[in-house]
Design a protein around this nucleic acid. Structure first.
Lengths: 229, 229
DNA sequence: TGTACATCAGTGAACGCGCGTTCACTGATGTAC
DNA sequence: TGTACATCAGTGAACGCGCGTTCACTGATGTAC
């Protein structure tokens, strides 16, 4: 039904395709299998619950053909998380563009986040779910991607605060609070029918504004510690 | 028999024990099975991944004996979520006691929360995990428990604000932000070794303070809308 | 150019495993008399 | 009081299923000559 456009990726077509060499050409690619896996991920499915046979079935190949492309399901999961990370990085880029142009910075960024969340919902589901369930390795990978988001946000917060001549109580902590909150709310948004999202979007904007107002207010109380590293 | 109300009641020791009646006495109880299930839940296991046979093994009974106590694993899951909800309600009680006595309200409540989190970690894991993974029904149940927490917090926030003569931008939204953030951070705390928790505790306190400072600051800007319902 | 050959993506069949669920049963424990 | 009986918690064996993984294979496609 909804054919998703695949973006080029680090892990899309790995070394095997770099130099063809002799032998039969592949009719199915890693990317095809990843797409099949994404097709199966829904609001109640985490990567850890995907079975090899199920993914193979969805991809239209025999179960054992899976091994031609991935060592096991875990390797597929890593590729998925990696892809999700890329999508996340794309969000940051879009949000940054919006931040400058729109009247309300928070509103613009939140809109950008939510739009991306919807567009790449399957992919971002992965980060949100795998960071709470899934093996320790998956958690670490997902956590890493979120930390990256957090750091980028922190940089932007400091820049924006400097532009507006307002302080920040603890930029890193502020960024973390916003990140965690936005992701937590985003996770519930993904499980929601279309009609509830606007309200949720409004709530997120309100929450982020509270945090920013709070970090500024606290900074005003203790101005000497405005930018602790 | 067909009319089975799936009402989530207090499920510790249900009707079978209320009135013994004739027949062999049970040597194992629902509570024993629940305890066995809790024993199996760790940082990487969600309720949905528990298998009937596994729980039965842990409880020391034959797989089919499970059916004497629960209709299926889903019913066990409901009981677990219910129990987790009770634990959550206990947190609210403890935190309320602390709120009055300690110097820093936020610090006291957060400490109470984190202590309870550690004490009942297996149980609260359930709420945190099942609200992001698991069937729609589990999600709804977990969400419901969190909403309850949120409402209680909202009432307390309003009361505290009234005592201190400070406004609240949007009490419900403030409560929601604090709840989601605290739970999200709490979830990562559960996956953490002991030594990181103090730092995380500190972070949570800082975040909550930011939100409260923010809601007060925003209320000061638009005082007419201090308590919108 | 054609032909032989090597490579290797994809396959069908089979394996052993743990699963949920069922069945007929066993035997302990309470009740009735 | 003792005895017969009804209840029902727990059991062992069995079922069919989907799983991950293996094996030897097939046959398409590239390379060497």
């Amino acid at each position: 039904m909804t054919e998703r456009t695949r973006e080029p990726s680090i892990s899309d077509t790995p070394s095997p395709a770099d130099e063809p060499g002799p032998g039969r050409r592949p009719v199915i690619t890693r990317a095809d299998i990843i797409a099949a896996a994404l097709n199966l991920l829904g609001p109640t499915r985490s990567v850890s619950t995907l079975s090899l046979r199920e993914v193979a079935r969805e991809a239209g190949i025999a179960p054992n053909s899976f091994y031609r492309h991935f060592r096991d399901v875990d390797e597929l999961a890593v590729a998925l998380i990696d892809l999700a990370g890329q999508s996340l990085r794309q969000i940051i880029g879009v949000a940054r563009q919006r931040a400058g142009s729109e009247p309300g910075v928070v509103q613009g960024c939140t809109d950008a986040f939510m739009e991306q969340l919807r567009a790449d919902d399957r992919l971002l589901h992965i980060l949100l779910r795998e960071s709470t369930v899934g093996s320790a390795a998956f958690k670490r990978a997902a956590e890493q991607q979120m930390n990256f988001f957090e750091e980028e946000l922190c940089i932007d917060l400091i820049r924006l605060a400097a532009e507006k001549n307002s302080g920040l109580y603890d930029p890193a902590l502020t960024a973390k609070a916003i990140t965690r909150l936005v992701f937590a709310m985003g996770a519930t948004a993904l499980d929601m029918p279309e009609e509830g999202r606007a309200e949720l979007n409004r709530q997120i904007v309100g929450m982020v504004r509270m945090i920013i107002a709070g970090t500024q207010a606290l900074a005003a109380k203790t101005p000497a510690e405005a930018h602790p590293s």
